[in-house]
Design a protein around this nucleic acid. Structure first.
Lengths: 117, 117
DNA sequence: ATGAATGTGTACTATGTAGTACACAATCCA
DNA sequence: TGGATTGTGTACTACATAGTACACATTCAT
């Protein structure tokens, strides 16, 4: 399956073809890590970075932070805080949606984002 | 606010009044940790244990694992895996419910657990 | 009154996390 | 053609996590 490093490398390389500012080195410096480290991350020689670094990376590349975090096996801190305030309800909700088809989740999402309460 | 250690100590002590098998030592041994460690956990001298240990503790005490994990600032691994499979949808859903009143969440939960799809 | 059980203090440790520091060969480009 | 830039190899590190090991004084049960 697609790993975190692969995904980042592909996304960055695509941009690098057009704009020099997406070289590994320049991205690394912008997001505040050593180029050697980002190199290892992209090749999967080290585990994915911390949440904060992943978010900076996602922003720099214009990728969805939630998706990038997910590829790193992490759930964003903001989402965790929301769940932690009502653990029982969210646990039941999430488990209830485990095997639901995509369209069912979308339906619930839409219902909720319409502020239907 | 109520800490993890306080909650565990209170719950365990309540049971210990009636049944000797809920002494700190016996619980510690059943869940597979050193008594000295559980003692420190209950008094908040060390951070809450790992997820696996918290779950064993919750089971031993008959407490809700999701709630105990939440008090430790953690979201259970099973829930995380479910979220990670569809990060965008769940992110939107959870953020959408951030400020929803309890009854609204319950409504969604019920709708979902009715398998309404 | 004594042996078992209880809770706790002190010291130590293994593994994981999240990187830095620096040198190097290859490539670009002016 | 030579200075700048690029990606990468090697070595090292600070801090966090998740506990163990053992001794000790106190209390409980018989």
């Amino acid at each position: 399956m697609r790993t975190f490093g692969d995904h980042v490398r592909t996304a960055r390389a695509r941009r690098a073809e057009r704009e020099a500012r997406y070289s590994l080195r320049q991205v690394a410096i912008r997001i505040g890590v050593e180029p050697a480290y980002l190199s290892k991350v992209e090749r999967g020689l080290v585990p994915p970075p911390s949440e904060a670094t992943i978010v900076r990376l996602a922003e720099d590349l214009g990728e969805d932070p939630d998706v990038l975090l997910a590829m790193a096996g992490k759930v964003g801190n903001d989402l965790r805080q929301i769940i932690l305030r009502r653990p029982k309800q969210f646990a039941e909700l999430i488990r209830g949606l485990k095997n639901a088809p995509d369209h069912a989740i979308l339906k619930v999402v839409r219902e909720v984002s319409d502020g239907n309460w």
